[in-house]
Simulated assay, not measured.
Amino acid sequence: MKIGIIGLGLIGGSLGIDLRSPSANGVQSQGHYIIGISRQKYTCKLALEKGIADRVDTSFEALSDAEIIIVCTPMGAIASTVKQVIPYINPDTIITDVGSVKYPIVQSCSQLWSNFIGGHPMAGTSSSGIEAAIPSLFTNAAYVFTPSEQNKLEDVEKLKAIALQLNAIPYICDAKIHDRAVSWISHLPVMVSASLIKACLQEKPDTLKLAQILASSGFKDTSRVGGGNPELGVMMAKYNREELLRSLYSYRDNLDGIISLIEEENWQDLSGILTSNGEARPKFLN
């Protein structure tokens, strides 16, 4: 199958590596021919060197015979990219994306292309760019698809098969439900983590310096997502604003409740919350 990947950063590059990964006997294990598209000639050169694509180009014309196109640009560029690629592809081509917000993207792109199916691989690292692309990034990760009523079942099945070839776990759900769920487990943690770092930086210099020296796994784990790609964080807030605000308000209410328990020295109720949270946490871990 010929698969086009637009945007050869961490996600797009990692998709290319796995979907055209050769097996031990030198035969392509997935059988896919990958066409990589990047605006940067240097990125195109690197994509060939890293084995990300069989062919690379800076023009969408190279996608004329692609059966599936995966748009791996930043969220703000997904709809405009779909619009630009349409003149060069055939009517049966499936277009999907990897954005972490689905409802607004599906709404806009489905109007442009009836064979658009929203996608979101729940995988990544703190690094970005083609240099960060690695094999097996999607192994055991959830890969969500949010088809609309106009999509064909066989097209959805093709994308599920792609996810399985990546050793990911495909899930099908409604775009709005997806956005509400990820506001809790992905977007809210970014904002909470960013608030933690910002609050620490407001401490007096001597205390801040000691805190930076003493910081270990607890701070490292809690602050990781808040110190990541700022563009991605802004896009999460912009495109999932309503659901993110909903989860932030609820989080703030719960934080206020914990503050009140500490002010009142109500250690019994605080212990109850911490105990129930400890019992619930494993259900969120794959």
Score class of each variant (00 low, 15 high):
residue 145 F to N: 02
residue 197 I to E: 01
residue 165 Q to E: 09
residue 145 F to K: 04
residue 207 T to A: 13
residue 166 L to F: 01
residue 198 K to H: 09
residue 184 W to H: 10
residue 175 A to W: 07
residue 154 E to F: 11
residue 211 A to H: 00
residue 151 N to Y: 04
residue 163 A to M: 03
residue 197 I to H: 05
residue 155 D to F: 11
residue 157 E to W: 10
residue 147 P to G: 06
residue 186 S to N: 06
residue 191 M to N: 07
residue 197 I to N: 05
residue 205 P to S: 09
residue 143 Y to M: 06
residue 168 A to M: 00
residue 216 S to W: 08
residue 221 D to E: 15
residue 147 P to D: 02
residue 193 S to M: 10
residue 206 D to G: 08
residue 176 K to A: 14
residue 204 K to F: 02
residue 207 T to C: 08
residue 185 I to H: 09
residue 210 L to M: 10
residue 162 I to Y: 01
residue 167 N to P: 01
residue 153 L to S: 14
residue 205 P to H: 05
residue 165 Q to S: 15
residue 167 N to S: 10
residue 145 F to I: 14
residue 160 K to H: 01
residue 135 P to N: 08
residue 146 T to D: 00
residue 171 Y to T: 06
residue 199 A to K: 11
residue 154 E to L: 15
residue 158 K to H: 11
residue 160 K to M: 06
residue 149 E to D: 14
residue 143 Y to R: 02
residue 142 A to D: 01
residue 194 A to C: 07
residue 195 S to L: 06
residue 176 K to N: 12
residue 171 Y to S: 06
residue 155 D to E: 12
residue 189 P to N: 08
residue 175 A to V: 06
residue 209 K to H: 14
residue 135 P to F: 01
residue 187 H to T: 08
residue 199 A to V: 14
residue 165 Q to R: 15
residue 215 A to Y: 03
residue 149 E to L: 12
residue 181 A to I: 13
residue 188 L to A: 06
residue 203 E to Q: 13
residue 167 N to D: 03
residue 131 E to G: 08
residue 194 A to F: 03
residue 139 T to I: 02
residue 159 L to K: 04
residue 212 Q to H: 00
residue 222 T to N: 15
residue 184 W to C: 10
residue 189 P to M: 08
residue 212 Q to Y: 00
residue 160 K to C: 04
residue 187 H to W: 04
residue 176 K to W: 10
residue 142 A to G: 05
residue 153 L to H: 11
residue 158 K to F: 09
residue 153 L to F: 07
residue 131 E to P: 00
residue 153 L to P: 01
residue 136 S to C: 11
residue 173 C to K: 13
residue 163 A to K: 01
residue 157 E to F: 10
residue 223 S to A: 14
residue 209 K to R: 15
residue 162 I to M: 02
residue 188 L to W: 00
residue 135 P to L: 04
residue 182 V to P: 06
residue 160 K to A: 00
residue 212 Q to F: 00
residue 183 S to L: 05
residue 143 Y to A: 02
residue 135 P to E: 01
residue 184 W to Q: 13
residue 176 K to G: 08
residue 145 F to G: 03
residue 225 V to S: 05
residue 208 L to N: 10
residue 172 I to L: 15
residue 136 S to A: 13
residue 188 L to V: 05
residue 211 A to G: 04
residue 206 D to R: 15
residue 206 D to W: 06
residue 179 D to A: 03
residue 207 T to N: 11
residue 191 M to K: 07
residue 134 I to D: 01
residue 224 R to M: 13
residue 189 P to K: 04
residue 201 L to D: 13
residue 164 L to Q: 11
residue 225 V to L: 12
residue 215 A to E: 03
residue 204 K to A: 12
residue 151 N to E: 06
residue 139 T to Q: 03
residue 138 F to E: 00
residue 199 A to T: 15
residue 158 K to C: 09
residue 211 A to I: 11
residue 196 L to A: 08
residue 148 S to H: 05
residue 168 A to P: 00
residue 177 I to K: 11
residue 170 P to H: 07
residue 222 T to I: 14
residue 137 L to Q: 03
residue 150 Q to E: 14
residue 169 I to C: 09
residue 169 I to H: 10
residue 133 A to M: 07
residue 160 K to I: 10
residue 138 F to C: 00
residue 184 W to V: 13
residue 174 D to E: 15
residue 193 S to A: 15
residue 142 A to F: 08
residue 159 L to H: 04
residue 132 A to R: 10
